[in-house]
């Protein structure tokens, strides 16, 4: 890249700046992890120190000792995993339709996908609640209190953005490839899944980051739709326990937040490369 041509002192200055910014950006995270490891009295100390000499696992113990904690973790994984995979597939099909076909209402649909992202989710929980309640009566598995009641709304809310992002990837696959495939006698389905899909996969990875984070970190649906079946609760509920009317348990909050953030970070690091190349592809036109 053009980094090569920059004169040495400038590059060193740029690198120093990058490291400094990295430190500043990482500092709140460091503070979070630190507070999670500090003994209770030190978290409340009026003279905060940026280290601790007596690291303690008490806060983490309070997190993991919660009833059903492992279950919540698995539920979160299941919900986020399903949403990521399903929204990837559905959005891929939809993005293919709006980029590689020309039909009436195409632009209207595109605008709709954009508008759908603007809907304030908080306001929609009330109508959604009644919808899920009534749907649960007829279709088992998607009503209130089921994991389906978390998966479906998250799927619906992550789709518009996913379609919007994926358009660029689908468009970037050369038309010539498609024509060649048909000339070779490939069916539409074969082209779609065997040729187009693998080429768009990095873009799917990048897109999946968004649906994963929004689903994984969600409190709203989890506390609105999982009412009586506590065994179907998700991880954020294990964090909310530490926010209390008569005094927050800071150590517990920080430990639970650390536990919640780590899987996302791991996921990020895994898809980091594809994320960068992917987002690049999404926007090249």
């Amino acid at each position: 890249m053009n980094a090569l041509r920059i004169r040495r002192p400038w590059r060193l200055a740029a690198e120093a700046a990058a490291l400094l910014v990295a430190a500043v950006v990482a500092f709140p995270l460091y503070w979070m992890v630190l507070a999670a490891f500090k003994p209770a009295a030190e978290v409340q100390s009026a003279a905060p120190r940026p280290w601790t000499l007596r690291p303690s696992l008490d806060a983490f113990r309070r997190v993991f000792d919660q009833q059903d904690f492992g279950r919540y973790f698995l539920n979160s994984l299941l919900v986020a995993g399903t949403v990521v995979v399903a929204s990837g597939l559905v959005a891929f099909l939809a993005a293919t339709a709006v980029t590689r076909f020309r039909f009436r209402f195409r632009t209207t649909l595109l605008v709709m996908f954009l508008v759908a992202q603007m809907v304030p989710v908080e306001a929609l929980t009330i109508p959604l609640f009644f919808l899920l309640r009534d749907a649960g009566g007829t279709v088992p598995g998607i009503g209130l209190n089921t994991l389906g009641s978390l998966i479906l709304p998250h799927l619906a809310f992550s789709l518009p953005f996913a379609v919007w992002m994926l358009r660029g990837f689908v468009r970037a696959v050369p038309e010539a490839l498609e024509e060649a495939a048909y000339l070779d006698g490939a069916s539409r389905a074969r082209f779609l899944w065997r040729i187009l899909f693998p080429l768009v996969l990095p873009g799917l990875m990048a897109t999946s980051v968004f649906s994963f984070i929004s689903t994984w970190n969600d409190f709203l649906f989890a506390k609105s739709f999982i009412i009586s079946a506590t065994e179907n609760s998700t991880l954020p509920m294990a964090l909310l326990v530490f926010f209390k009317d008569e005094g927050n348990d800071w150590g517990g909050i920080m430990a639970a937040s650390t536990v919640m953030t780590v899987p996302v970070l791991v996921f990020f690091v895994l898809v980091q490369r594809r994320l960068v190349s992917g987002l690049g592809g999404a926007v090249k036109d």
Binding site: V21, A22, I213
Partner: peptide, 20 residues
Amino acid sequence: ALMLAALGAWATPAVTGSTV
């Protein structure tokens, strides 16, 4: 380093980020 720090900030739940 910068990328990882940024991804970390991105990954943090909003409630936690605000609290910290």
